[in-house]
Design a protein around this nucleic acid. Structure first.
Length: 440
RNA sequence: GCGCCUGUCGUCAAGUGGUUAAGACCUCGGAUUGUGGUUCCGAUAUACAUGGGUUCGAAUCCCAUCGGGCGCCCCA
């Protein structure tokens, strides 16, 4: 037996039966982001490995153990694990700092991370995201968060919980880090192995630990005091306070989560996450934040920036596939020549039309029509001889005869009529139209 | 990388040591040579993941391998 090749672990086909949902997400993204003045950018799926090492940060798990890296012609290349680094690279390379600020970009596409797949996590997954360059003021933070919520609303997900936090600037963080290390040092031996490592490399990430024993330590009053303390400098505080007041004014409900630390090294000041309770343990739909130093770290002019990304598979699992893919019309006929001519004509008028090519019997054709279309056009010998076609509403079983001579007129009326999904509306339109024709 | 669960037709799914391994859906055909989605009949499929072992006998018990799922870590 010939071996069947299967999809690779952590990858999935997006099948025709689900594609409407994906097209809906994509068209909604285009619509919402365009309205907010964002332009789409498409960057390559692989980049120089160094881009991610410097961009995402080489202390991160993403770079340390999750990248698909390969060598080709003595270059080290990596399948993008996220797209901010790529967009920033393109921003710098194409001199976009000379464009009038802000530069607002959005993207969608596949990302790759080598991880154990589980609910809400694949090795190839899709993100849609936005990046805004050139505005350091908190109004940008508010706009970007508003945009995320606006997008989710347009998808039909209005009530997800928003969490925000501020990481402060590098100065603030230095202070905080020192204080945290100092306070935590007595408990060092009790920390889990991961935390011991974080303790040295990236103490901020300690707060993310989910090991119970570590959580208990972090719950201690003196440590909570440090975590909850306001370590931000006046500028960062004002920035965060302004953001909160904007969000309040927008009526956006959020929670300040002091323990929210994004796992990518480039974030500063504002970070945020949008979560759902219906996703299993991978509950973040959206994550993002401000990254004011990334552009200069990658060799560009110092440019403040902020953005977020959403996982499209996670969005899809929250969305119900309520889209039906029915055709407008299925032509039932034994006369292929006339059928083809009719199909051509109706398709050119923007109807979706299909027909039988295999020479199946009338009843089978009609059965197929009933399964796949709203309307059947019946074109038999009687019709052809009498120079009319029979239009059958497959929901109501009503049919009307339309003389060929009237087809132009019919098409004009039928366009809206057929495009709607409301069967009541269809019926009323049908009877209206039928007044000019014979009902059989 | 570590834990737990799980592999029977395209899909869902009975079967827990002896069965011709059910059934349903899907697909196709017929009843119905011009009226469907209801009904009835029929057809199609190399279905027990693979390799060992235990046993007179294994889809069923054991081991390994490989898939799938979930959780930890991390993230979208």
């Amino acid at each position: 037996m010939t071996k069947i090749i299967k999809v690779q672990k952590g990858t999935k086909d997006i099948l025709p039966e689900d594609i409407s949902l994906w097209q809906f997400m994509e068209s909604t993204a285009l619509d919402v982001f365009t309205r907010a003045g964002y332009k789409e950018i498409r960057t390559p799926i692989f980049e120089a490995t160094e881009l991610f090492q410097r961009g995402v940060g080489d202390t991160t798990d993403i770079v340390n153990k999750e990248m698909y890296t390969f060598e080709k012609s003595e270059r080290s290349l990596t399948l993008r694990p996220e797209n901010t680094a790529g967009v920033v690279r393109s921003y710098i390379e194409n001199g976009m700092h000379r464009l009038s600020a802000p530069v607002k970009l959005w993207y969608k596409g596949p990302m790759f991370r080598y991880e154990r797949p589980q609910a809400g996590r694949q090795r190839q997954f899709h993100q849609v995201g936005v990046e805004m360059f050139g505005v350091k003021e908190p109004a940008a933070d508010a706009e970007v968060i508003l945009l995320a919520i606006d997008f989710l609303k347009n998808l039909g997900l209005p009530n997800l919980s928003v969490e925000i936090n501020t990481l402060g600037c590098s100065e603030c963080r230095k202070k905080f880090r020192a204080l945290l290390i100092e306070t935590l040092r007595p408990y060092y031996d009790a920390l889990c192995d991961d935390c011991k490592e974080r303790f040295e490399k990236n103490p901020l990430r300690l707060l993310d630990c989910k090991v119970e024993s570590c959580k208990e330590i972090f719950a201690k009053p003196e440590i909570q005091q440090v975590i909850q303390s306001d370590f931000t400098c006046p500028d960062c505080s004002i920035h965060f306070e302004n953001l909160k007041s904007y969000l309040d004014a927008l009526g956006i409900v959020y929670k300040v989560n002091k323990q929210l630390v994004r796992g990518l090294d480039y974030y500063n000041r504002t970070v945020f996450e949008i979560k759902s309770e219906n996703l299993g343990s991978q509950n973040a739909v959206c994550g993002g934040g401000r990254y004011d130093t990334l552009v200069s770290n990658l060799g560009g002019e110092p440019t403040p920036a902020i953005g977020w990304a959403m996982g499209m598979e996670r969005l899809a699992s929250l969305l119900e596939n309520k889209f039906d893919d029915k055709l407008d019309i299925y032509v039932v006929s034994d006369n292929k020549t006339e059928t083809l001519k009719l199909v051509q004509r109706f398709r050119s008028l923007n109807y979706s039309v299909d027909f039988d090519m295999a020479g199946k019997k009338f009843t089978k054709q009609l059965e197929k029509a009933a399964k796949t279309a709203y309307f059947a056009i019946i074109l038999g010998d009687d019709e052809i001889n009498g120079e009319y076609l029979t239009l059958k509403n497959l929901e109501t079983a009503k049919q009307i005869q339309v003389p060929f001579a009237n087809i132009d007129d019919f098409e004009k009326h039928m366009y809206k009529f057929i495009r709607t999904n409301s069967s009541e509306w269809m019926q009323s339109k049908l009877s209206m139209l039928a007044s000019g024709f014979t009902i059989s």
